[in-house]
Write a protein that binds this DNA or RNA. Structure first.
Length: 392
DNA sequence: GCAAATGTCGCCGTTTGA
DNA sequence: CGGATCAAACGGCGACAT
């Protein structure tokens, strides 16, 4: 039997974090607003009831833009841009710190609203989802409008939706008409609407693959679609080459993943200045222990035990080193995690200064104890916590 | 000088056990 | 018993994503 094509929607909230902030501070509508930087500067409330907002020009130190309003984007400000660079481009932009608590709240609201219309949903992080509309009786555009309206009613926020036979095309499509977009894509639209786009628009082609494709003279999806499969295979290996080829032709059979288990839990932090392992040993040791305690608390709060403990370092030159260690048995104990992480640390070179330290817990299993409340989840460390040492 | 935090996946080399 | 072989687990790490 010939199955009808699926109807897969990709829904992407428009400038999500920034839009949530505008719900709270409507006086900022129409302005260049950026979200990011350190978490320490809430807007101050003035005696007359108005608010005093920080400006990007006053920011000092490390940090990146997490997101920004469309007005800020028009000034050349984009996600992951360094704060100081952004401040040069748009010194008068309003700066707000991230408030994940609020974003998670609105995330739950919009997802619940969609689920009432179409329950088959794949979570893709805080601000986007895939939705399978295939089994619903209504017409596609009607459904899309209904979903957009439900999201608006639940949150006051707009989103952009694309619907196509698969996740790949819908993901590309939701970006084609933003904000507040509604895009339908059929296979017949591929030559005109997909092929002219840069290969980087394919979800799964990142900066590295993009650069290597450029080397081969391939910058658009059309050029990728026309590329010799044998040449692709030489440069990318069989598996990735086949996937690239299929993607360029809009072919993607991946099902929606409607339930998934957490695979790892991690905490990491970038220091205010690069730290030297010997000179700053005391500071680093305290940060390291704190990270371990936070991972332990996260595990306990969420009801997990971990059997693998890993660390991540970012050196001053931005290179990354990771090490991990599998324990004899699962744990959520901060001291055990601290010891394991310390063992990992002994295996990495520590000559260069560090800019980031992270601790990860993986190979998770459910703890028999129920998830802990936040207050009771703080672990106590014994007094003789191992200290950081140079490799011997 | 500047470039976050958190998480997933794939690939590869090594180790281990059969 | 030595060698070949295979699978699974492990560890490292790159790439990619939001």
């Amino acid at each position: 039997m010939n199955m009808p094509p699926r109807r897969i929607a990709h829904l992407d909230m428009d400038a999500f974090y920034a839009s949530v902030e505008l719900l709270r501070y409507p006086e900022l509508r129409g302005l260049a607003v950026v979200i990011g930087g350190r978490r320490d500067q809430q807007p101050a409330k003035l005696p007359d009831g108005s608010r005093r907002f920080s400006l990007l020009r006053d920011y000092v130190g490390r940090g990146v833009i997490t997101t920004s309003t469309y007005e800020a984007r028009a000034l050349g400000i984009f996600s992951a841009m360094g704060m100081m660079k952004a401040a040069r481009l748009a010194p008068d932009a309003i700066l707000l710190p991230v408030d994940f608590e609020a974003y998670r709240h609105y995330s739950r609201l919009f997802k619940a609203a969609v689920a009432r219309i179409a329950p088959k949903i794949e979570d893709r992080g805080i601000d986007e989802i895939y939705i399978d509309l295939s089994d619903l009786p209504d017409e596609t555009v009607i459904l899309a409008r209904r979903i957009k309206q439900a999201v608006m009613e639940a949150t006051g926020l707009t989103c952009s939706i694309a619907i196509s036979p698969n996740k790949l095309l819908s993901k590309i499509g939701s970006d084609l008409d933003k904000p507040d977009g509604l895009t339908l894509l059929a296979p017949a639209d591929i030559p005109l609407r997909i092929w002219p786009l840069p290969v980087r628009k394919i979800n799964g082609v990142g900066p590295k693959a993009d650069a290597r494709l450029a080397t081969l003279g391939i910058t658009t999806i059309a050029e990728l679609a026309a590329a010799d499969p044998a040449v692709l295979q030489e440069h990318f290996g069989r598996s990735y080459a086949e996937w690239l080829h299929a993607a360029s032709h809009g072919i993607d059979d991946r099902p929606l993943v409607t339930d998934s288990e957490t695979k790892s839990i991690s905490r990491e932090t970038t220091f205010e200045r690069d730290l030297h392992v010997r000179r700053d040993r005391a500071i680093l040791s305290e940060i390291f222990t704190t990270l371990c305690m936070r991972v332990a608390a996260d595990l306990q709060r969420k009801g997990y035990l971990a059997r693998t403990i890993g660390i991540k370092l970012r050196y001053e030159d931005f290179r990354v080193a990771t090490r991990d260690l599998t324990l004899p048995g699962p744990t959520a104990d901060p001291a055990t995690i601290r010891r394991a992480a310390g063992d990992c640390l002994r295996r990495v070179p520590l000559e260069r200064k560090l800019r980031l330290l992270g601790v990860r817990a993986g190979t998770l299993s459910a703890s028999s104890a129920p998830p802990m409340s936040v207050e009771s989840a703080q672990g106590e460390l014994p007094l003789d916590v191992p200290t950081m040492t140079s490799p011997s």
